[in-house]
Every structure is written in structure tokens, then in C-alpha cells.
């Protein structure tokens, strides 16, 4: 900041804005690059297991349906949280929705985001329920582990 004071009672304050604007634009650029809008289906309660082989998918998955299994016995699907035993009606609704859209529901990907402390039996029960409705493609999601 440069302060210039003129004589005769007249005073003028001249502020150099350039560094501030530079910084602000750099911050905006950083946040624009780092922001991720596709996290609607990432519940922060779920602590995913880690794997060094878990790599982000090359292309977006076809008709993804995300099921998030908590370390208790509930599943979060969209905005709803239900016990594992009551997930069938919600999956059936998704299946009917896909059929109404003319999409082959067998090509839909069931994304399983299960908590690392969840019981394997519950994950299997979840997969089995989806299988009984005719879904075939499953994606087990894990956290990318740094080597």
C-alpha cells in the first residue's frame, strides 16, 4: 500500500490493488480446478476400504445406482436410508424407472459403497437382493490408496 500525502490539507490514499487481485484470481482458479460437483452420492459417513488397485473409472458408468452401506445395517440410497432388508422396493422402483426410460436395466451398474467396518454378510445380502431383481453388474467402490 502506498500512501501519498499532499500538502495544503489535501490528502489522497492510493492503494495498489494489483497483488490482491492477482492472489484472488489465483485462488479462484485453484478452487475452480479442484471443485468436484459429482459428489452427491458420496456420503461422508461411509469410510471406504482402501486398495492400491482401486483406480478411478476411465469412463462414466452406465445407469449407475449407488447403494451406500453403513457400518450398522442400513443402506443409503439417494436421500433415503433403510435397513438392508427393506432395500428391495427401492431397487424395484429404480428398475421400473429404467424400463420406463427404455434402458436395459441389466446394463445398469450397482455401485456398492460399503463402509470398511460393515459386515460382509450384509454386503452380500445387498448384492443378492439386486441379483434377485435381475441386476448383473456390480461395482465395489474403494478408496484409492497411495503407495
Amino acid at each position: 500500500m502506498r500512501v501519498t500525502k499532499g500538502g495544503g490539507g489535501a490528502s489522497g490514499v492510493e492503494m495498489d490493488m494489483t497483488p490482491m487481485i492477482d492472489m484472488t484470481f489465483q485462488l479462484i482458479a485453484f478452487f475452480m480446478v479442484a471443485i468436484n460437483f459429482s459428489e452427491a452420492d458420496q456420503n461422508q459417513r461411509i469410510k471406504l476400504p482402501a486398495s492400491e488397485l482401486a483406480k478411478p473409472a476411465d469412463a462414466p458408468l452406465a445407469s449407475p445406482i449407488t447403494l451406500q452401506l453403513t457400518d450398522g445395517s442400513t443402506v443409503i440410497m439417494g436421500a433415503e436410508e433403510v435397513p438392508v432388508t427393506e432395500i428391495k422396493p427401492l431397487l424395484l422402483r429404480e428398475k421400473q424407472l429404467l424400463e420406463a426410460q427404455g434402458t436395459d436395466f441389466k446394463q445398469a451398474n450397482i455401485i456398492v459403497r460399503a463402509d470398511r467396518d460393515a459386515k460382509t454378510g450384509r454386503v452380500q445380502a445387498l448384492i443378492r437382493t439386486a441379483q434377485e431383481l435381475g441386476f448383473e453388474k456390480f461395482v465395489l467402490r474403494a478408496m484409492q490408496q497411495r503407495e
Binding site: L48, A54, K137, R141, M143, Q144
Partner: peptide, 9 residues
């Protein structure tokens, strides 16, 4: 970052 294991079952 998250990654996937694809299972056709």
C-alpha cells in the same frame, strides 16, 4: 479419489 472393482455376477 475413489476407484472401482467391477464384478459381473
Amino acid at each position: 479419489p475413489e476407484g472401482d472393482f467391477n464384478i459381473k455376477m
